[in-house]
Each structure stands twice: as C-alpha cells, then as structure tokens.
Design a protein around this nucleic acid. Structure first.
Lengths: 230, 230
DNA sequence: CTGTATCCGTGTTGATACTG
DNA sequence: CAGTATCAACACGGATACAG
C-alpha cells in the first residue's frame, strides 16, 4: 500500500509532544524528562553550580545535565546567572515560577515514601535531606520550638527553623544556629526519622554536635516517615 | 546463548535507576516514565479499559501502553481486574495508594497552567476536563451551590457537585443531575474558564443543555485559569 | 474487541574521552 | 571546573501481525 501515508490533516505531528490541553501533560513537557525534577529539587534551596548539581545527582552525565539545563532554561524554569567578579562563576537558579514547583516535588516524595520499596540506606544528597525535614514535619509536635538548628554535611551547611507548621531552611547561616550537627546526610536518619536518640549517634561517632545538644535532640523528634501502605 | 555481558564489577549497575534515597527520586522510578502520570490521570475517576485509555491518550501506542500497565501494576499503583460475567471484561483500576497520587497530578497541572505556553485549543480528554473543574475551582464563589451538573461527552458521562471547597466527580450518574451539558470537551471551555456565558454557547450550537439552564450557567462561573506568570 | 509480540526508524540516555 | 563530542544501548512510537 504505497499510498503515501498522508499525515492526519494539517498537523505536522510533533512526535514527542503530548498533544493535550491538560495542564498535567504540559507540565510533563517541561519537567517530564529524566531527572529534570531532581535538578529542580537540587535548586530549591538556592542557586548551584554545574559541578554541585552533578554531585547531588550521582550518575548524571555531563552531557545530559547540559541538555536539561538548556531545556529548563528555555521553559522558564531556571536561569543561568554569572556572579560578578571576583567570583565570576556561573550558577543556575530557579525563576520565581520554577520555585513554585516545590509542591510537586513534595507531593511526589510524600507519596512514594509510603511504598515499602523505599530504601533509606541509599545515599541522600544534602539538599534532599533538608527538604525531607520540610516534607516530614509533624507540626503538632514541633509547635512552639524557636531554636535554630544547623546541619553541616561536607562543605554544605544549612539551618532549619520551625515557623508555623513549616520548616524554614537557609543555606550557610550556621553561625546563627543554637546547635550544629555535623556528619554524613545518611548518618542523621536514625535520629530524625527513626527512634534513635541523637546522643546515641553522637556516642557512636556518627554525628558530632556543637552547641546545645538538648535542643538538637528535641528537634530530631519532630519528624517521622509516613505510614507504609498495606 | 553467548553469555558475555558480564555485569560490571560488584554493582549489577541498575543503569536506569536513580540511586537516591529521596522520596521524589523513588516516585520518579514508579511514575517517571513517559505518559505514566497521564495513565494515572485517566484512571482517577474510575476504572477503565485498555481501549479507553488509548482513546484518552491519543498517540500512545499499544505496545507502550502494555508496558506501562505492567510496570504500574508491579509498583502497586494499579491492578488489573476482570469484571464478573456477563461483562467479563478486563479493566484497570488504581489501588488506594495509586489514588493518593492525585495531588501530584493536580500540583503539576496547576503549576504548568501558569505558563504562557499553555494552549487550551488542543484536545481535552473527558477525564482531564472534569479534573480541571476540581483543579480550577474558586471555592469562595462556589460556596453554597448545591445543584448537580452533568456533562455528556460522546459516550462518557459525569456529574459534578460542590462539596465544601471541593468538586465531587462521579461517573455515569447523569440521571440525578439538575442540568446536563452535552458537547465536545473543548466546547465547554469558553464558558467554564473564559467569560462566555453558557447560553451563548448554546445559541451557537456548540453545547446543548437539558434541565435547568440557569443553574448550569451559574455553575460555569465557579472556575478560572490561574494567573499567567510574568 | 482486547491485548500481546515483533520489526523498524528515530530520539534519548549515559559512559568515556576530550577541549577551554 | 565547565562543558562538548562521540558512541553504544535503550526507550519510544508506528505499523503491523496474531491470539483469545
């Protein structure tokens, strides 16, 4: 049947596009490619450099990261900015609209963590650990807590505060923290999301705490993984 | 079989897996493949058959749909059920956990609709139109409205009711509706999300209304697209 | 009609090597 | 450190053909 296979009507049929007016489908055209949402996750706590992104998303090769950054920039999700001298380095930052994707990242995380397939022994990036605090907060338990807790993981430092049912996160303000926990991201998990008291982790040398250990220990009880399905 | 293909070293190298403890990354392993979330969208209002899914997701080939259904079933997102005789047909239904993915679909849609790239002239599936009602409800405007409005699009029928800031959707309960709108999904848009009064659409023959036209017209004013970015 | 299997052209992904 | 180039493996979608 060599009959030419005329393309249905006028549409040139852009093959890899969902031809769908639904907002969800449009969103997937923006952020539906592999790892795109994880790149956004890594940017949710502030601008990052190319190499930092690669570090937070192990296994992502440079060429794919380049492609994603270009396509996310074209969509208006992020911008590429050059810091003024003497820094003079390039960083990638979410646009205001890009930051509004945070509820998507959170909804995905909260949902998937109910699966028994979740394996917290895999590595956490520093950003994803901090976002997990926001994701897993038990507001009733944390209410009224006013101290600032710092986390130092390798070169990265963050502070967390409780503000009305929400966790405020800030990069590199460790000097204002009432207590600073230092360690590998995964080392904190038993205290934050399990039942191990923070001092036990300190005793085992997995974590060190500078400042008010009692405050830090209390802070660690404000979080819990969601109940598993079934 | 030439065995060759020795897996690199200790790591069986699950190449296409994100090796990440973050819940967001895990979610993307479940629903991050192309169209997976759109399949979930099509199932959010009730079980569907293979062919119905293909109809709602034009351009999805049968082989890929088979793969997705298998992988979503393996993840526990949906189940394949055989209706009892005489129907005796197979349908795909979300599990309770799968239904909990609705906030993800909604968050994606609400976010993307703020982009100027959104083109409502593309086709809507009946399901996505009904979900758009839930997504775009202006609760303050709808409060107190108690009537039931039906929508008939081809063979598919749905009813919508307002229930405390939320739109209740039901399939095939048109007989209990106070007014039923009939037409193509896209034909409703000017009245639902634009400023065209419903009677104008009726006058132009794009939509027909059975029952209380005044109630239906009022219902159509309860929705609006989110403000564009910029 | 429902679903699966197979071939094929093309686009996407990721490992490695390479350039400024 | 920041990215590009190249290449092999795989995923996607169209078009079948085929089983119940």
């Amino acid at each position: 049947m060599e009959l030419e296979n005329v393309t249905d009507e006028a549409t040139p049929a852009p093959r890899r596009r969902y031809d769908d007016a639904c907002g969800t489908a449009l969103a997937l055209e923006f952020v539906g490619e592999r790892r795109a949402l994880l790149i956004i996750r890594e940017l949710l706590l502030g601008p990052r450099r190319f190499g930092e992104l690669r570090a937070g998303l192990r296994g992502l090769s440079a060429n794919v990261l380049t492609q994603r950054l270009q396509s996310l920039e074209a969509s208006g999700v992020l911008t590429r900015e050059t810091l003024p001298p003497p820094a003079n380095v390039q960083v990638y930052a979410l646009t205001p609209w890009g930051k509004e994707a945070e509820p998507i990242v959170m909804a995905l995380g909260r949902w998937a963590l109910r699966s028994p397939a979740h394996d917290p022994s895999r590595p956490f990036s520093p950003v994803s650990l901090m976002l997990a605090l926001r994701m897993m907060l038990l507001p009733d338990r944390a209410r009224g807590f006013t101290a600032t807790i710092g986390f130092r993981m390798g070169k990265e430092g963050y502070t967390a505060q409780i503000d009305k049912d929400r966790v405020l996160l800030d990069r590199s303000a460790l000097d204002r923290a009432d207590a600073v926990l230092t360690g590998d991201p995964n080392a904190f998990l038993p205290a934050l999301f399990g039942t191990t008291p923070l001092p036990d982790l300190v005793a085992r040398g997995r974590v060190t705490v500078d400042g008010d250990l009692a405050l830090a220990t209390e802070f660690c009880t404000f979080f819990a993984l969601p109940p598993k399905i079934g």
